[in-house]
Amino acid sequence: MDLSVKPLAIVTSQINTLARHAIALLPNLVAAIVFLLITWLIAYLIGRSLRSLLRRSKMRASLAEAMEKLSRIMVWTFGLLLAATVVFPGLTPTKLLAGLGIGSIAVGLAFKDIFENFLAGFLILLRKPMRIGDDIECEGLSGRVEAISIRDTFLRKRSGELVLMPNSYLFKNPVKILTDQPTRRIEIVVGVAYGEDVDAARDVIRGAVETIEKRDKNRGIDVFAREFNSSSIDFLVRWWTDSTPRDEHESRDLAVAAIKRALDEAGIEIPFPYRTLTFKDPLKIQSDEKE
């Protein structure tokens, strides 16, 4: 064993070297922290100014929010790159960009889900038909869009629960926007018995729907004899009302009640399903009475 080698001295020397380098980097670290604080202030001021400017314009709220987020991201990206060059003076912008090109592959694979949802969230905000506050349906989920974050869309269900939907899920699947237009068409099926007069039943149903208040009176009412069902002749009844789910339920409730009342008053039967049972052999009736 070579006694001239002193492990403790080597470790002490390495620690002293690291300490000297750390002390030498302290001014750069302080400058980088100050620079990041300035970046935060600039990003805040630019975002706030852009938000105030876009609110006075006719731009949609979702698009304005997307522009604000993009401006903040650009400021922070530029600020972080400059802060890195301040901490490491030998790190030129060319070397930094080259390193980012190589490292972006590993970072992209590690944070694929986050980047995918972030990009999807930004594209959702750019969508013209969809706005924050709209009622939507997507793959069995329905509710009002309350907010769109970097990763999730906050969907408030009509029963009160809050659902966090990944932006990529909402972007990739078909979305039905219920409140895209101020009014929406509702339809129900009404059946009358085969023995009733079809034309008279149609007039009674149309008159009943015309009496309800919760409908768009500027649009017509459709009553079509649709098909021969097992126990009834079915009519397809369509009318327009406000597009929110609450208005739809209220209008449907009023229409069903009015149609039922009008058909009863006109003496028109609303049939229920009839069932006829047949047996292969005659049934024997057994009497409990004693002869």
Rank of each mutant, 00 (worst) to 15 (best):
L50R: 10
G99Y: 12
V30K: 04
T92R: 05
A110Y: 09
L26D: 06
W40P: 01
P89N: 08
R72S: 06
I102D: 15
N16T: 09
R56T: 13
T85F: 08
R51N: 07
V107G: 00
A22F: 13
A106M: 09
L25P: 01
F115L: 10
I105G: 04
V87P: 05
L36N: 11
G103D: 02
S71I: 01
I15H: 12
N28F: 10
A84N: 01
R51D: 08
T94W: 13
S49K: 11
E116C: 04
L81T: 12
A32F: 13
S49W: 06
L54M: 15
K112C: 01
L81Q: 05
L37F: 10
A110G: 12
E68R: 15
V34Q: 08
S71T: 03
T77V: 08
A110I: 12
N16Y: 07
K69C: 10
V107D: 00
L25S: 07
A31M: 12
L36Q: 09
N16E: 08
R51W: 06
G101W: 08
L54T: 14
M67Y: 09
I38T: 02
L45D: 01
I23L: 15
P93R: 02
A106Q: 01
A83W: 02
I42D: 03
I38R: 00
T85G: 06
G99H: 05
D113H: 01
G103T: 05
L70H: 03
I102T: 15
P27A: 09
F35R: 13
A84E: 03
T39F: 01
R48A: 07
A98T: 13
A64E: 04
A106C: 07
H21G: 11
S71G: 02
A22Q: 08
L100C: 10
I38K: 01
A31W: 07
L29D: 04
R56A: 11
A98R: 12
A84V: 00
L91T: 03
I38P: 00
H21W: 14
A22H: 09
L97N: 14
L82D: 06
D113V: 02
S49L: 10
G90F: 12
I15T: 14
M59D: 00
S71N: 02
M67C: 12
S52L: 05
I38G: 01
R51C: 00
G79N: 04
R72L: 04
P93G: 05
F115V: 02
L80N: 02
L70R: 03
V30M: 02
S104T: 15
I15G: 12
I38A: 11
H21M: 14
I73H: 04
F88R: 06
I42E: 03
L109K: 03
L82E: 10
L82S: 08
G47R: 09
A84I: 00
S57R: 03
L45S: 08
I38H: 00
F78I: 15
L53I: 14
S57Q: 02
K112Y: 06
G47E: 07
A24Y: 11
T77R: 02
A106D: 00
